[in-house]
Nucleic acid binder design. Structure first.
Lengths: 132, 132
DNA sequence: CTTTTTGCAAACCCTTTGCAAGACA
DNA sequence: TGTCTTGCAAAGGGTTTGCAAAAAG
């Protein structure tokens, strides 16, 4: 653990693990603030940022949307439903050799990649089929 | 062409092709506005959006940064320099079969994926080596 | 003449920041 | 005690929107 062990930090981390499914910082804030009204938005943003910098949690940067936080810290991919905005894990193997290929193709020194899928989640697909 | 053929649209599209290297909407706006002061920011944002919806140009959604627009419309990947923010093309083959794998793994109907690399561009690498 | 597009400013979402007060080690 | 963290409100970046006027077809 890098920073100081404050009550807020514990509360925020616990709440993230309770919410489990890739909440945004603001969703974490709403939940935390409901139970602990004195905890402010900035603290939640700052703490989630620190936790992900430390590697204790994951941060999923979503194209065109708020960042989401992941209680699972290891590298994996995500898919976002273009209808309801829901984000889920995509447990396929991490791409092998693609960073090297990109380095060769671009001349950059590659440090990481992120792969995001877009699609329609089972619920929304169901709903569309029923409605149509 | 889907919409109406306005002067603004032509000017904006031309400016994008002239700028060539993945400008943000605001960079396009600055250039357009400098030459045509009557053209407003909203028009540039709206027009770039329409052009990319039509498939006439590409939109590159950057993790944690402004969208960038690409005069090349075909699918390809991008790398962003974590130091200077520059964005370049990564001309590696489009990932094959990965959408199907993701669909199987997640249950989503996958419509697309985006792969973004992060790294250090040759210029910044050079600069770091010289400075150090 | 009908419908789309424009230009402006204000609104919006998500996030960060300055600062003084408070909590940790 | 010295430093990190908090809470607040305000600012910030990027983008969208409501509306009346103008332009396209």
């Amino acid at each position: 653990m890098t920073g100081r062990n404050t009550v807020q930090r514990t509360i925020i981390e616990d709440e993230l693990r309770r919410l489990a499914n890739h909440p945004t910082a603001d969703e974490v804030y709403e939940a935390v603030h409901a139970a602990h009204p004195s905890i402010g938005r900035a603290t939640v943003y700052r703490t989630l940022g620190r936790l992900s910098d430390e590697g204790a949690i994951g941060r999923v940067r979503i194209n065109n949307g708020a960042d989401r936080f992941d209680h699972q810290a290891f590298a994996h991919y995500h898919v976002r439903c273009t209808i309801c905005g829901r984000v889920d894990d995509v447990m396929i193997p991490v791409l092998d050799g693609v960073d090297e290929a990109a380095a060769r193709a671009s001349g950059y020194q590659i440090t990481s990649h992120s792969l995001q899928f877009d699609g329609v989640c089972p619920m929304c697909r169901e709903r569309a089929a029923t409605t149509a």
